[in-house]
Amino acid sequence: MAQSILDIENLVTKFKTANGEVSAVRGISFSLKKGETLCIVGESGCGKSITALSIMGLLAGNARSEGSINFNGKNLLNVKHEEMRKIRGNEISMIFQEPMTALNPTFTVGFQLCEPLMIHNKLSKKAAFQKGIELLKQVGIPLPEKRMKQYPHELSGGMRQRVMIAIALACNPSLLIADEPTTALDVTIQAQILDLLNDLKDEFQTSLIMITHDMGVVAEVADRVIVMYAGEIIEEGTAEAIFNTPQHPYTKGLLSSVPNVDDPYFKLNPIPGTLPNLNEQISGCRFHPRCPHAMEKCIQHSPYRTKRTENHAVRCWLQEVEESEYRNYQPTSAV
């Protein structure tokens, strides 16, 4: 397949707080290929949004990132502020969860849409306006000429999210990060937006990182999936691998926490407990206090990454147990 456009290695993001330094992201590595859709899933507070903001360089002042984020051969963590501004919105752009808070209520849709075009593509005001109308048409907004002159509060939630997408796509970015783009929307509107994202991605060959907690949305759009828990990647693989053969107890728990619409006999099987606080000290595997299969080893040692297949890796000691059981089983069956 195509070469990777984003390589993240051992990314650690820490925040200075009154109670000392806390790590929101604890050494994650992944890469993204051109035209690929990667979904990052996990519950709130697991570090998925912080990962996105680290890539965008939009973290708050008390945050510090270590490791490397290689985008098209440049390490974004070493890039100067001025240069980052040229990349942001141009080569990498982001769609936020709440379209109402992400759009500026005091400027027209047209102004906000033309801004990146005028700054990054150096278009004239007139040309930018024309391009803006085209973009609004592309994301399926009726009467684009009228909408350009309207303010965000005059649009519905779905319409605002379409405007956000149009702004994000304005400069044809090679990487698009969508942070829960449909969580605030109704299911019928959500379906429209997901279709739109899929179509646009195919059209422009954009790579997409989608952050969500909705497993249904993941199944709909993802090529590959990363499952995060308490700042770490605990399982990663192709969408098929994650949904059909989930390995980590947390992934399994997530999948069985969402009632299935099509299955009247669905058994709800919640994961006990809640996500730990960022400053909580947990030895060994960070999931062990909530894990139904926790063993002595899980409490003492952090599990390492085990590759199940070429496209599926897990961080869980159970993998090792299964493997050794398998190894022990082989000779006896041979005899």
């Binding site: 519905s156 779905g158 319409m159 109704d186 299911v187 019928t188 509107i189 959500q190 379906a191 429209q192 997901l194 279709d195 909705d214 497993m215 249904g216 949305v217 993941v218 199944a219 709909e220 969408a239 098929e240 949904f243 059909n244 999948l255 969402v258 299935n260 619409v261 099509d262």
Partner: peptide, 25 residues
């Protein structure tokens, strides 16, 4: 029908035609 078919299902590779509702409420 449209409401039910709009729900994203957590199943991979299920490609059935969804009923698209146009526009907003």
């Amino acid at each position: 029908e449209a409401l039910l078919s709009a729900i994203p299902r957590p199943v991979v590779g299920r490609k059935t035609e969804r009923i698209r509702l146009q526009g907003d409420l």
